[in-house]
Simulated assay, not measured.
Amino acid sequence: MKKNHFSIVFKSFLMILTLLFSSGIIGQQKYYIPQKQNDFWNHVQFGGGLGLSFGSGYTDISILPSAIYNINPIVSVGVGAQIGYISSKNEYSSWLYGGSLIGLVNPIPEIQLSAELEQINVSTDYKYFGQPRFSDTFWNTALYLGAGYRAGNVTIGIRYDVLHDDNKSIYGEAFMPFVRVYF
């Protein structure tokens, strides 16, 4: 019976060791469960422009930040903002602010086609020999279609306002050159 008792104790001891080590082995095993990572910000680029122009009695200051989301290497969409101040001594001073929706297409890496819908609020104080004469506030809408040469993050090109009206548009010409930089 002692031999049988020893056999039962030994088998029980082995069973307990097996359970202890097997749970330890399972506890140490790492399972890889793939999870979809949010890589939204890896596709976002920030950029925009700064404009400064000074002359004989003339001042033009503009800040134009923008951000685009690269849907793929060919298509990007984004938004932009604009704030500006323009003044011509003894004639007028204007504050401009607004925003834009941007669409970019790169059919080949060196060529960039663009469409930009811009809505700008213009508030102008007209002067007569330095004295306020009257004020005018209105919204200006522009739809720019453009094309440019792209090298890395910089695009240089020209755009055309298809909604340009010589009597209503805030810019004197429908064609405008541009330099676009995104980081």
Rank of each mutant, 00 (worst) to 15 (best):
residue 3 K to L: 09
residue 5 H to M: 11
residue 6 F to H: 07
residue 6 F to A: 14
residue 16 I to E: 04
residue 18 T to E: 08
residue 22 S to E: 07
residue 23 S to V: 15
residue 25 I to Y: 14
residue 36 K to H: 13
residue 44 V to P: 05
residue 46 F to A: 11
residue 46 F to E: 02
residue 47 G to T: 06
residue 52 L to F: 15
residue 52 L to C: 03
residue 53 S to N: 14
residue 53 S to I: 10
residue 54 F to M: 11
residue 56 S to K: 11
residue 60 D to I: 07
residue 63 I to C: 01
residue 64 L to T: 13
residue 66 S to D: 15
residue 68 I to K: 05
residue 71 I to L: 13
residue 76 S to Q: 04
residue 77 V to K: 05
residue 81 A to M: 12
residue 85 Y to T: 07
residue 86 I to E: 14
residue 88 S to V: 15
residue 91 E to M: 09
residue 92 Y to H: 09
residue 92 Y to P: 07
residue 94 S to K: 09
residue 100 S to L: 02
residue 102 I to H: 00
residue 103 G to Y: 11
residue 106 N to Q: 10
residue 108 I to R: 04
residue 109 P to C: 03
residue 109 P to G: 02
residue 113 L to W: 05
residue 116 E to C: 01
residue 119 Q to Y: 13
residue 122 V to C: 06
residue 123 S to D: 15
residue 124 T to Q: 09
residue 129 F to C: 04
residue 129 F to R: 09
residue 129 F to A: 12
residue 133 R to V: 06
residue 135 S to D: 13
residue 137 T to N: 13
residue 139 W to S: 13
residue 141 T to D: 08
residue 142 A to D: 12
residue 142 A to S: 15
residue 146 G to D: 04
residue 146 G to F: 05
residue 149 Y to M: 06
residue 151 A to R: 12
residue 153 N to S: 15
residue 158 I to T: 13
residue 159 R to I: 03
residue 159 R to N: 11
residue 160 Y to S: 00
residue 161 D to E: 04
residue 167 N to E: 15
residue 167 N to I: 08
residue 171 Y to G: 02
residue 173 E to V: 03
residue 177 P to A: 05
residue 179 V to E: 00
residue 181 V to F: 15
residue 182 Y to R: 05
residue 183 F to R: 03
residue 183 F to N: 08
